[in-house]
Design a protein around this nucleic acid. Structure first.
Length: 272
DNA sequence: CCCAAGACCTGGCGGC
DNA sequence: TGCCGCCAGGTCTTGG
């Protein structure tokens, strides 16, 4: 489900309910996620106050004085704030009850997500320490983006989805950024000239900014923390549109599998 | 170092 | 209805 805009939408949705609230209780119904939920957090966390809700790439970071709760939504995860009791469904693996009476519910049918606990400097966590720059920050410079692309032969699409290059871009926004930049997803990285890479760098930021502003993309089941959908799906040019007509040129949108992932593109607007 | 493939899971859909 | 294969928003791990 979630790429950076969906995770950021979730962060903004849950933060007001969590910030400066203490945890009253934690219920864990299924520990087996991408990695097991650490033993003991249901004893450790109650009584602790959440000082902030941050994000690094697609990871949500719930700050406490004694450590950080790190949450990844994987492919199918979501977080909802419940202001009254709602019976848990089959895939509602964790509930975090707050002293306000609201609770935060983690649902994840495919269980590729993660809920982890880290004490100490969170950015030293092995999952975060090697991440590339945040695309919507000044750290995401073209020079760095360009330098890192040199000497690599893989398809350009893999490069922008590589979290050591830039964080937060998944399959949807990779397809969209490439469309906007006029670059074929299978173009070899080392054959792209500087000017075209500049366009790509620009549209990576542009598409994510606009998607965050729209509250993310709802395809099947993504909803914000209050249950409302994201509206960016209305602005998708190619993702999920195989066989439809390109709004820019009238040609037919195609699908191609690159590294096991569906890649949607317009063969006329996007060149190698 | 780079890269491709495999791994982890469940559910929905179309076809027969 | 049932079964089968394919598809899905991620990314770590392994092996060449």
């Amino acid at each position: 489900m979630p790429e950076l805009p969906e995770v950021e939408t979730t962060r903004r949705g849950i933060a007001p309910y969590l910030k400066n609230r203490r945890i009253a209780a934690i219920t864990i119904r299924q520990r087996k996620l991408r990695w097991p939920i650490p033993e003991g957090i249901e004893q450790l966390l109650p009584g602790q106050k959440c000082s902030d809700v941050g994000r690094r790439g697609k990871y949500l970071l719930l700050d406490f004085d004694c450590g950080t709760l790190l949450i990844h939504l994987g492919m199918s995860g979501s977080l909802r704030v419940l202001e009254q009791e709602v019976p848990p469904g089959k895939h509602d693996h964790v509930d975090i009850l707050l002293d306000s009476g609201s609770s935060l519910r983690f649902r994840d049918p495919r269980r590729f997500g993660a809920v982890l606990w880290h004490q100490g400097e969170i950015y030293e966590h092995p999952l975060l320490s090697r991440l590339g720059p945040e695309p919507l920050s000044a750290d995401f410079t073209f020079e760095d983006f360009w330098q890192r692309s040199r000497g690599r032969r893989k398809p350009v699409k893999n490069f922008i989805m590589d979290s050591t290059v830039v964080v937060g871009i998944g399959n949807i926004y990779a397809c969209e950024a490439l469309f906007l930049a006029g670059i074929h997803p299978n173009a070899r990285l080392d054959r792209l000239k500087r000017q075209r890479m500049e366009a790509l760098h620009h549209y990576c930021m542009d598409v994510l900014e606009k998607a965050v502003a729209a509250g993310g993309t709802t395809l099947k089941d993504f909803t914000s923390a209050d249950g409302s959908p994201g509206y960016f799906s209305q602005q998708l040019h190619v993702y999920g549109r195989e066989g439809q007509i390109c709004g820019q040129c009238g040609d037919e949108i195609k699908r191609l599998v690159i590294q096991g992932r569906s890649s949607f593109f317009c063969p006329s607007c996007q060149r190698k």
